[in-house]
Design a protein around this nucleic acid. Structure first.
Lengths: 202, 202
DNA sequence: ATACATTCTGAGCTTCTGCTCATATTTGGG
DNA sequence: CCCAAATATGAGCAGAAGCTCAGAATGTAT
């Protein structure tokens, strides 16, 4: 078996123009995915919407999947950063802390779930895989956060509690309508978790 | 504009042999989807796995999407039926009722979430759409169930509570590992909901 | 101004997909 | 056993997708 030229290895953007182009392509991919669905998100269509030729795409992305992988990474990283930025002071009680955390995430990018639902159609379950990776980190972070409040909590297995909270939040976030949040939805979710965690009659 | 022959309209299975063929095709689609992913689930591959020729597929399905639509319908209907069968006696307290409901669903088809995750890749978000429809029914059903136990509950907005519970369950079900259930996972989820719903210190 | 590197172009090649249809096979009632 | 209806076959077509590459355009440095 010949040494097999492991990877074609695309050009890396060196000038500003090029970096801008990469951004434009990624945004176009997001736009087409959101408005027309994955099935219509062909490389030619993405190039067209980006105002760029197909060839240009392949200067920076090894193949079509790589475009969406980049998009997915950006979205997931954005969410992680949002979490650490909204991360509440350890001094405040868990009940309030969770409420703050949830509503700040919800308000930050209300249109995000729509994009996420579209991203589920990317081949190989790439979105789910990347989200699962990130969830590992988030669960870890939440477990540690909970452990600093151990005295206030009635739950024993903090790892399990952290997973339950994160997975449940995902389920709600992916399926809630905007109206849900307009009518006390966020408070209801906060209640779900604080009642689970603490003995208070909140 | 010409009258446009509205629908090709496929043959309907009349003999048993034909009904068996339809089943074989649907099962093959599920099998390929699960083992090889949607990207490799071509009509030719499905036919091959089904031990049937491509032409046969198109005797019973208008197009490729219809195969997966049928598969999705079967799965979603199965879940709904599971729910009504496991539906607990209204006499038992909510806390116990929810626990029974959850664990019976979890135990019924432990491998289901893997298939569901694969079904998310079906074009047009068909799976999500069908699940969303079914969720409407389930939320309604749960709201009514809760309302028969109104006295035991601390929640006010039963509609919102029902949605929160169903959506959260989905999130947990789609992402939990088998180990999670082996280690008290189901009990933990039941605790999440009963603490949310009732004032008891369960 | 010149030279070289970087970036962009887009017609078109290759590959593969969904699907058809003329034909063959099987079924079951009379 | 016969034959019309039902079912199954599969080579191959139409079309579209991902991707390439030879060259044009643009940027940077001297």
């Amino acid at each position: 078996m010949p040494p097999k030229t492991v990877k074609p290895a695309r050009r890396r953007a060196k000038q500003q123009r090029a970096r801008a182009t990469v951004d434009v392509i990624r945004e176009a991919a997001a736009h087409v995915l959101l408005r027309e669905g994955y099935a219509r998100a062909t490389t030619n269509r993405i190039a067209e919407v980006a105002g760029v030729s197909v060839g240009t795409i392949y200067q920076y992305f090894n193949n079509k999947d790589a475009i969406f992988d980049a998009l997915i990474r950006r979205e997931v990283d954005g969410l992680k950063q949002l979490l650490v930025k909204a991360s509440p002071d350890p001094a405040v009680p868990v009940a309030d802390a969770l409420g703050i955390l949830l509503s700040s995430i919800i308000r930050a990018r209300p249109e995000a779930p729509t994009l996420y639902r579209a991203l589920e159609q990317v081949p190989n379950g790439l979105f789910r895989r990347r989200v699962a990776e990130a969830r590992g980190n988030v669960v870890e972070w939440l477990r540690d956060f909970l452990s600093t409040h151990r005295r206030e909590l009635r739950v024993r297995d903090l790892e399990a509690a952290a997973f339950v909270i994160v997975a449940a939040s995902e389920g709600i976030a992916m399926n809630a309508s905007p109206e849900f949040y307009r009518n006390r939805g966020a408070e209801e979710v906060a209640a779900l978790f604080t009642r689970y965690l603490t003995a208070g009659s909140a």
